[in-house]
Amino acid sequence: MLFIGAQFVIWSVTGAYMVFFDIDYIHGDSLIVNHQTKIKPDNLTYPTQALFQQYPQAENLSVGMLVNREVYRFNIDKQAFMLDASNGKLLSPIDEQSAIAVAKHFYADDGEVINAELIIENPPFELSSRHLPTWRVNFDNFGSPALYISATNGKVVTKRHEFWRIFDWMFRFHVMDYDDGGNVSNWFLFIIALLALFAAFSGLVLTYYKMIKPMFSKRKNSDFDNQSPQPKMNVPTGDQP
């Protein structure tokens, strides 16, 4: 019973963290400037006809911006490429300097960049492997923010700061998934939740008899505070006097 009590404390603390912090803040939306830079058609001086001649297998062509320059992005056999749309120069994969420039362009605060690291395999928990290869650019600011910049298309694929990392931990403890973090349907949670349901129900019954009923009965019930009901997680056991 003490064990379920501990889980009740964990549920309350982790639940409170999750509801008190705004989820958009947790997701680091405030770390990012949502630029609305328009494509200047006059800058597309490298014609797409030339592109298709040079890369006949190019598929899913798109046009967008890399910081302030127009770029073509396309795939060849699921591999992503990026060209400068003014001269056709191959820009992908982007180097460290460009990754830092992109990260600074999108970063909403003015913190210094600590470093940038290229992640090619074994991504950390916070990065989906479908985004690889990715530059992680770390900023020197409150909450250790990091922006992840795709090395192949130069876009911000995700962002993280400590508040989100803590949130992920809170969620794991909340759903009692102590191995990989995402699975709500685990047996451990089932058993504890079942016991907790019983505990919560007995707590409700106790509250009714110890609090609600005495409040409505006109009877003077002076020993009500001294009667000391058992806490909700404590079911009567045989060793009572």
Binding site: K38, I39, A58, E59
Partner: peptide, 21 residues
């Protein structure tokens, strides 16, 4: 894909575009 309307033409016609996909 190369025989689709060229993206340059499209973007000239709709100049307020942030991204074309």
């Amino acid at each position: 894909e190369k025989d689709l309307l060229p993206v340059e033409t499209i973007l000239k016609a709709y100049p307020e575009t942030i991204e074309l996909t």
